[in-house]
């Protein structure tokens, strides 16, 4: 269902593009990050970003056809870099999530890419052949602001 390959500071994930495997995979990712001494707040942010992107791939990219989600997580001294790849329907998030829904409208969706944008830097997208390739970077240390 899901395959995780760990080296000392990297994690390669290959996960079925379905919600339950994504959930289970992200629980493994949390264990890995915790074992790598990644601060809890940062680990929670990584979990959230991955969850938003992977859920989007499952619900939109793989809406009509099954597939897998690949994710390479590289832990550097100051940053965490991630490259995600899927063969689902093309989706360029460049225009998505620049603003959050107005809270007063009590929207039930539309927060995902806003959260991804809020918590990542260098978010970039490319369509390579039949693949969506998404790259982003995050800080490895917790920001000073309270969680």
């Amino acid at each position: 269902m899901a395959e995780l390959t760990e080296t000392k500071s990297d994690l390669r994930i290959c996960c079925a593009g379905e919600l339950v495997p994504v959930r289970q995979t992200l629980q493994h990712v949390r264990h890995f990050l915790s074992a790598q001494d990644i601060p809890y707040e940062v680990s929670a942010d990584i979990d959230l970003v991955l969850s938003e992107i992977m859920t989007n791939i499952v619900e939109h990219g793989y809406k009509d056809a099954a597939g897998v989600i690949e994710c390479d997580l590289v832990l550097n001294t100051a940053s965490v870099e991630c490259r995600m790849s899927d063969t689902g329907r093309a989706f360029d998030p460049s225009g998505a999530g620049h603003t959050a829904p107005d809270p007063a409208t009590f929207a039930e969706g539309g927060y995902g890419w806003f959260l991804v944008r809020s918590l990542t830097s260098q978010l970039s997208y490319a369509r390579e052949g039949d693949r969506n390739i998404l790259y982003f970077s995050m800080q490895r240390q917790a920001a000073d602001e309270p969680c």
Binding site: Y40, E41, A44, D45, A100, P103, F114, L115, L119, C147
Partner: peptide, 16 residues
């Protein structure tokens, strides 16, 4: 909990 609080803050749902 802290991570949930952060999500409410980022989405400003803590204001409504």
């Amino acid at each position: 909990t802290p991570a949930v609080r952060k999500l409410f803050r980022l989405t400003r749902m803590d204001t409504v």
